[in-house]
Amino acid sequence: MRLATLLTRSLAQELPNGMAAIPLNPGIIHTDMLSISFGEEAANYTPVSDWVLKAVPFILNLKPKHNGIPLTVH
């Protein structure tokens, strides 16, 4: 298990009811930095403008039941 996930799960156990700590993997997003690193291959990944349309509703639907669970925006 990754250190970040372990740390987040530890934090999650210490939070008051109704509050959550969720390690969130955004996936690979086509950004300027990705273009610098991947070159033309970056165009094969989700543009930020499309990712936001998926990520915002996903994030807004997170609940305390997700506390400590690693999730990925798909």
Rank of each mutant, 00 (worst) to 15 (best):
M19R: 11
V56K: 07
L15H: 10
I29L: 06
R9W: 02
Q13M: 12
F38N: 03
Y45T: 11
Q13Y: 08
T46I: 15
L24Y: 01
A55T: 04
D32Q: 12
N44D: 14
N25M: 03
F38V: 01
Q13G: 13
S37T: 11
E14D: 12
I69A: 02
Q13C: 08
I69R: 00
S37C: 04
A55W: 03
H30T: 07
M19S: 13
K65T: 13
N67A: 02
R2L: 11
D50T: 12
N44M: 08
I36A: 02
N61T: 13
F58C: 07
I59D: 07
M19D: 11
Y45L: 10
S37L: 13
V52N: 08
K54Q: 14
S10I: 03
P23Y: 02
I69T: 10
A20W: 03
A42Q: 02
L60K: 13
R2E: 09
H66Y: 02
A21E: 04
R9Q: 15
Q13R: 12
G39C: 10
G39L: 09
P64N: 13
L7R: 00
A12Y: 02
I59Y: 05
A21R: 01
V52R: 08
P70Y: 07
G39R: 08
R9A: 13
V73D: 06
L7M: 03
L7T: 00
L15Y: 09
I36L: 03
V73T: 10
E40F: 01
V73W: 05
T46A: 07
P70E: 14
P57G: 08
I59S: 04
A55P: 02
L60N: 14
E40C: 00
V52G: 05
M33C: 01
V56G: 03
E14G: 14
T31L: 07
A4T: 12
R2D: 10
R9E: 15
P16F: 03
G39H: 11
Y45E: 14
S35A: 13
D32G: 04
P23Q: 06
L62S: 01
A12P: 02
N25D: 14
P57T: 10
T5Q: 05
P57N: 07
K54I: 15
V56F: 09
V56H: 05
T8H: 00
T8I: 09
L6S: 12
D50H: 11
R2N: 15
A55M: 06
N61Q: 14
Q13L: 11
I29C: 04
E41N: 09
I22W: 00
I29R: 02
P70K: 08
R9K: 14
L71N: 04
N61A: 15
L53I: 12
K63V: 15
L71Y: 07
G68C: 07
A55F: 04
P26E: 13
Y45G: 09
V56C: 05
T8M: 13
A43R: 06
L6Y: 06
L6N: 09
D32Y: 03
K65A: 15
L60S: 14
K63L: 14
A4D: 05
F58L: 08
E40K: 09
L11I: 11
T31C: 09
V52Q: 11
R2Y: 07
V52H: 06
S35G: 15
T72G: 07
F38H: 07
Q13D: 11
N44G: 05
W51N: 04
L24V: 08
R9F: 02
